[in-house]
Write a protein that binds this DNA or RNA. Structure first.
Lengths: 101, 101
DNA sequence: CCTATAGTTCAATTATTTTTGAACTTTTGG
DNA sequence: CCAAAAGTTCAAAAATAATTGAACTATAGG
């Protein structure tokens, strides 16, 4: 499998990050990930496989998440440090607003 | 003119706020407003009258801005206190990321 | 090897958003 | 009263984005 592409976070416009986070399903995904890394299946999201794959891709392309292949799974994590460096406080306030764990 | 409607900020979902802020033109508007109240014309946005009116409406419906009629103008301001109360830190981090004036 | 698992991709459809321009409403200055 | 200024509204068009289901790829377990 070709390696998964992750954008340089400095190349992501703020508007693109906000667009990625503006979807309820994706906010739910990010909320789950805030608790720790997981595979798509473990996210327990109510969406078809392909829709979920799509949403995850949008988040990846916006620099929100990182994925690494592990077996047949993709282990997904939030790019917390990088996001915090580029958009200080933003992720925290979003996570805090969704549901402070 | 019928009074301008502003939603109760508690009724605005986070996803709707983020969607409103996810457009470059609207981020520009909010950036301008961060410097103080102004009319649409004063915003100096590169968009047609009706497109600008549309963007401003989206921001208003998302609870981001407040408008009051003054003569033939609408004086627009950011609903800063309310936003800060409902989504602590969010607006600040967005404004900070756009261009810390 | 064979099959199940986990996810991706594709093309088609549907849905939502954005943009445009023209017509309209309000308000004010002359 | 009249005209200009500042926006709004509307309908149509254009552009984006989301959802589906089927076909596909890669990996691992038996």
């Amino acid at each position: 499998m070709a390696t998964i592409h992750h954008p340089d976070i400095d190349s992501v416009p703020l508007s693109a990050l906000l667009a990625a986070l503006s979807d309820p399903t994706r906010l739910e995904i990010v909320g789950k990930l805030a608790a720790g890394p997981c595979s798509c299946a473990e996210m327990d999201i109510d969406a078809s496989k392909s829709a979920l794959s799509h949403h995850v891709k949008v988040l990846r392309q916006a620099g929100v998440i990182h994925q690494r292949a592990e077996g047949t799974m993709r282990i997904t994590t939030i790019r917390r440090n990088e996001l915090d460096a580029r958009f200080p406080g933003l992720l925290d306030s979003v996570l805090n607003a969704t549901g402070p764990k």
